[in-house]
Computed example of a mutant assay.
Amino acid sequence: MQVYGEHYAAARRNTQRATIAPGLDIAYVVDDYTDGWADPPLVMLLHGIAESAEAYAAWVPTLARRCRVVRVDLRGYGLSSPVHEHDALTIDQLADDIDALAARLGGPIHVVGAKLGAQVALELAQRGVPWMATLTLAGVLISPGGALGKWVDDWLGLVDRSGVEGWARATMPGRMGAALSAEAMLWWARYMGWAPADTVKACLRMLPRLAEPARLEAVRCPTQVIVAVQPERPGAYDQRQSVAEVRRWQSRIPGSVLVELQADAYHIAATHPDDCAAITLNFIERISS
């Protein structure tokens, strides 16, 4: 864990921390290259399992010139407070963390979520938190329990036998599809391998409990869902989903829009960061105008 923390501390110069409860700090990176006289929108980016604020680094050039960007380390990742393997981690807890952080930052805040971060963002949107200005989902499984639950025991075994990097390597094709080069796939596996095994296992154990949200109709903030349109090429641990399935649940969110992206991947926030960031910026500026 110490080596993990040192890795991020050495690489970052703009990390801030908020103590949101006794013994619980949430770290975040602020990127702001806006004009000094501007009043830019605030955008918060929430990452997936075995990631950290660095997962959104490629989004920064597009977003940070026009927005103040906050890239969060979810609990247990990056420089946020650790999680232990057998902690009873829940989406509610992770959402509470972000709600408390948002109170410190001040609203309104435009939220982007991918993977685990999308689950957290959806929970907050269903609560109707007043500070959430818009919601963008860039890669989300609406029922992680249904889609991934059957693999959790296998994945826990992979982490125990091969470490987080070994698990990331084995599952990377199902996450990234054919959208990345071999060099990029290796980079992502090594990067995800920095994540603490305790946190990753706690998150994996949480997945079977995550069913399709029951309150999507309660979401009131403007919402867009970015979905990959890809050929049917199933493989090991394939996490991709059809546009029809995404449209089915997206249509439950009042007034939401679906944006189709030509991509052979599930984790489009990683495989197509420039496209996703541009789509997000356009949505934020259109809603804010």
Rank of each mutant, 00 (worst) to 15 (best):
T136Q: 08
I142N: 01
I284Q: 10
Y191M: 12
R13S: 14
D154A: 14
T19D: 05
A125S: 03
E123W: 12
V60E: 09
R240G: 06
Q230G: 15
P208I: 06
A9Q: 09
I253A: 04
C67R: 13
H110I: 09
G76N: 07
S289V: 06
A263N: 12
L79N: 02
P144F: 01
D73N: 12
G157K: 01
A57E: 09
S81T: 15
G193W: 08
R75A: 03
Q230S: 15
K115D: 09
R209I: 14
G76M: 06
A179E: 03
G149C: 03
H47E: 12
G48L: 02
L135S: 01
A102S: 15
T90M: 00
T19H: 08
P231Y: 07
P108L: 11
V43D: 00
A189G: 03
Y28R: 09
R65N: 02
W188N: 11
V246D: 02
A121V: 12
D39W: 00
Q16C: 03
D275K: 08
G174M: 14
L74A: 08
P208F: 10
L186V: 13
R68M: 05
E85S: 14
P130R: 14
E183T: 10
L116N: 00
L116E: 01
D96M: 00
L141M: 04
A168I: 07
W131T: 13
L101P: 01
V43M: 02
V43H: 02
H84V: 11
A228R: 04
A9T: 11
Q239V: 12
A125Q: 04
S52Y: 01
T199E: 01
D275P: 04
I284W: 09
W151H: 15
D153S: 15
A133E: 07
G117I: 07
G107P: 11
T136S: 12
Q224R: 14
